[in-house]
Amino acid sequence: MSATTLERVRRALAGLEFEELAARDGMPTLGLAPEDVHAAMERLAHAGRFSTCILVTAVDHLPDEPRFEVVWQLLSVAENDRVRVKCRLPGDEPRVASVSDLWPGARFSERECWDMFGIRFDGLADHRRLLMPEEYGHHPLRKDFPHQGIDPGRLYREWDRARRAQQGFPAQHPDELQPQR
């Protein structure tokens, strides 16, 4: 753990409760309670000079509770160092504060995190899914989601039925095979 980075982080977060976690790669790592996330991030962004939010992602520790762990990685261009921030969230209705007001680029990562893990970010203006179709109805990177999906062709078949009805075709073209899964 880099001492100077940690010193700066400690100074920036003076008065807030945080935990210093050991990371295998040696990157300074903090653990925060969900309600402290936004205040701590604001201090890191301004007093800590962490000008860039590299990523927002999550880890699903399925049998354990609290189940989800949201991970942010911040980069300070001025100081050339990085810090990792972690926060554990409960399995039902995981919510955490959005940092998209501090780093606008975090919007995409937060939308992806909502799409893949179903974690809500309070304060994120645009809560659309990033990758999957809007009506998909599942969060596919959760550990309890089967990797081959739950009826993966459903949205295509619904679209195809509507298209055939609109164009006056029979519901299933005789040339075509039935979708397998």
């Binding site: 089967p146 990797h147 081959q148 999906g149 993966p152 295509y156 195809d160 075509e176 397998q180």
Partner: peptide, 15 residues
């Protein structure tokens, strides 16, 4: 890509 996102062969939508 035996995956939730990938169509398992175009023959499930086209001849």
């Amino acid at each position: 890509y035996d995956s939730y996102a990938v169509c398992q062969g175009v023959d499930s939508i086209l001849p």
